[in-house]
Amino acid sequence: MTHTLYILCLALFCIGLYCILRKRNIIKIIIGVIISEYAVNLLFILVAYRMQGRSPIYSPDAAIENMVDALPQAVVLTSIVIGLATTALLIAIAMRIYEKYKTFDITKINELRG
């Protein structure tokens, strides 16, 4: 059962990659980046889950037993913040590109030849 979840997560990651590689609209590419980012974050959270585990909140009246791993939750929060910064920058660049080129289609934005 849990293996299915992991594989679904990786499938989500691959959907994001497909979106980045195949789509021609800049906004869709950014959405692809966001999808694959969230797939990795989700996988990190799922890796830390244990069966019938409870949330890792320490309070005075609760017994500490069978908590899920708390470290990935802290780490994923950091990675979400990084994702926020990247996404905001990408969107700002995309808006500037629209201002200059008047299009979101990357096949028309190809003045640089690699």
């Binding site: 800049i26 980012e37 990247t86 660049i93 590109i97 640089l112």
Partner: peptide, 19 residues
């Protein structure tokens, strides 16, 4: 124009690398 285009390409590819 060119700087924005290059920056977008760089940002997307490098983000995929980070992922």
């Amino acid at each position: 124009r060119h700087e924005l285009e290059a920056a977008f390409k760089y940002a997307v590819m490098s983000t995929v690398g980070s992922l």
